[in-house]
């Protein structure tokens, strides 16, 4: 007994030492962003590196709002991100239910096809896709980005794998109780898969928020552009204002962090298993 206690204390110490090292390694980029955002541009990449600048250039945080229409960009990105996330979560979890708990012809082939497209790099079909969108007169509209992002195979795959972890017995019991498949999806699967849905929301949100190449190709008008394109506007042909890029990045990181923190509570151990019991 005593032995296990002392060894568990040692274990605790090791765990916390690991955690602190980890936090340090992971926080370095953020610290760098903060530090770069209050420097002159020339000092951002200067050697030897200074974490705390001699002079704090707080103006960077006001300059970013005047140099580019940052507010418009943020609102655009919010609009796109929220629509894409809602569509993605709804349609993916819906489709994933069929792939995981229903049986129909061609299920495996269809599913493999889904995953297969994840393996094709976007650079390979970007041009045909753009030409098709142009035929639909969707280029230079937000709708184009929504269509591209909202129906990814990734979401279906993710949700399906989580549903796989939910015992089939649960669905069978519900069927015997006379619930329709739609009822099972809504009353049983959705509540049970909250951690999975949170995960998908986090990823869709982060991906759409940080997407760069899609908006770059499809959005040409300034009033349609997104934050990531805005950041790129600080890089011009012969110079790059990395201090402003970092200041704007820090600002644009805030929504992502809020989403992550807000969904944390669904990662509390036992949500799903307590559901299983009930």
């Amino acid at each position: 007994m005593v032995k296990t206690k002392s060894s568990s204390i040692i274990g605790k110490i090791i765990i916390y030492a690991l955690l602190i090292l980890l936090a340090f390694l992971m926080l370095v980029p953020f610290a760098w962003m903060l530090s770069a955002s209050v420097k002159y541009n020339k000092d951002v990449f200067s050697f030897p590196m200074k974490w705390i600048p001699d002079e704090f250039i707080w103006e960077n945080y006001s300059t970013i709002w005047t140099r580019i229409p940052l507010l418009t960009f943020i609102l655009n990105t919010f609009k796109l991100t929220i629509i894409v996330t809602v569509l993605q979560v709804l349609t993916s979890s819906f489709a994933a239910y069929a792939f995981s708990k229903l049986r129909f012809k061609g299920r495996n082939a269809l599913f493999l096809g889904y995953i297969g497209t994840i393996a094709v790099p976007w650079q390979a079909y970007m041009v045909p896709q753009f030409m098709m969108m142009r035929e639909f007169h969707l280029n230079n509209t937000h709708l184009a980005i929504i269509c591209l992002q909202a129906f990814s195979a990734f979401g279906v795959f993710l949700m399906r794998q989580f549903y796989e972890g939910i015992p089939d017995e649960l669905c069978e019991a519900a069927r015997i109780d006379g619930l329709s498949e739609y009822g099972i999806y809504r009353r049983i699967m959705l509540p049970l898969s909250l951690p999975a849905i949170s995960t998908l929301v986090i990823f869709t949100f982060v991906t759409t928020w940080n997407d760069f190449l899609g908006p770059l190709i499809y959005l040409n008008s300034t009033d349609l552009k997104t934050v990531q394109l805005g950041l790129r506007m600080f890089i011009t042909q012969y110079s790059s204002d990395y201090n402003l890029i970092m200041a704007a990045s820090v600002v644009s990181l805030i929504p992502v962090l809020i989403v992550f923190l807000a969904l944390q509570k669904y990662f509390v151990q036992g949500v799903a298993s307590s559901g299983l019991k009930g």
Binding site: V127, F130, L216, I217, N220, L229, R232
Partner: peptide
């Protein structure tokens, strides 16, 4: 029409694809 400087050539090629 601002196509951005860093990726100008890529965006231009895509915009002109198919003879736009």
């Amino acid at each position: 029409v601002d196509l951005g400087s860093t990726d100008y050539q890529t965006v231009l090629a895509t915009q002109l694809a198919g003879g736009a």
